[in-house]
């Protein structure tokens, strides 16, 4: 399956793959594209900054993932609805304004109802505005596609991002504190928490290892497709 998609649009096609006739208009392919074939984090290497910063614990990763899913879905929806009215010359500004609107709503709601989490995520909720994934989907997909499929695309890409965050967050929390979501898994009697995994270097190790692993698996497939 992966080979077919890539043989059709070529590895150089990159993020715009989702916007061509090949994948557009088909819900399943759009979802698969966002989650696997064109996963924003492990294939496009986007959104790395926040993926490194907020993944100290699984809970933080989940909330951040949910926030990004919400923002991508909503901005894709609105931009897709407005796509025939947005003046081409100022489309980036319009996209940013709409994305910023939903990010600020997210941030305000977190501050009001999820205060402790909001303090832990700090500036990174606000920085979703500059997350290339959100902007990328608006520019590459929502501007050319109808609303419903744009929301599906947003959800798939957001989920693709959220899953990676959750994996890294779970790994770092487990290795760094011996617990998952605050429940002790690795007993402190025989496991000494490696605090390095909670600190910044741990994020680089975890994300690097994950991307290397995926690249190793995909690399073989891409070479086969190339022949």
């Amino acid at each position: 399956m992966t080979n077919q998609t890539q043989a059709g649009c070529g590895p150089a096609c990159g993020p715009s793959c989702g916007s061509t006739g090949l994948c557009g208009g088909k819900g399943f392919l759009t979802v698969k594209d966002g989650l696997l074939t064109n996963n924003p984090v492990w294939v496009q290497i986007l959104g790395i900054c926040s993926a490194l910063a907020v993944t100290t614990r699984l809970e933080n990763s989940l909330v951040m993932g949910a926030a990004v899913i919400f923002v991508i879905c909503m901005s894709n929806l609105i931009i897709s609805l407005l796509r025939n009215t947005i003046p081409h010359r100022i489309r980036i500004i319009v996209e940013v304004a709409i994305i910023a609107l939903f990010v600020i709503v997210c941030d305000q709601v977190l501050k009001a109802f999820y205060w402790e989490m909001s303090k832990q995520l700090g500036p990174y909720v606000g920085l979703i505005i500059t997350n290339c994934i959100v902007m990328g989907r608006a520019e590459a997909f929502a501007l050319q596609n109808p609303p419903l499929i744009s929301v599906v695309d947003g959800a798939a890409n957001g989920l693709g991002y959220a899953i990676i965050l959750a994996v890294i967050g779970a790994f770092r929390e487990l290795a760094g504190t011996g617990a998952i979501l605050g429940h002790v898994i690795l007993s402190p009697e025989w496991y000494t928490p490696n605090q390095l995994m909670i600190l910044a270097p741990g994020a680089f190790f975890a994300l690097g290892a994950l991307i290397a692993l995926v690249a190793a698996v995909r690399g073989g497939q891409e070479q086969e497709a190339g022949r």
Partner: peptide, 16 residues
């Protein structure tokens, strides 16, 4: 955008 944000801000301010 300003109207929406003002509304959300007003609504969440007491909780914050």
């Amino acid at each position: 955008c300003a109207l929406v944000l003002t509304g959300v801000g007003r609504f969440t301010a007491p909780y914050q």
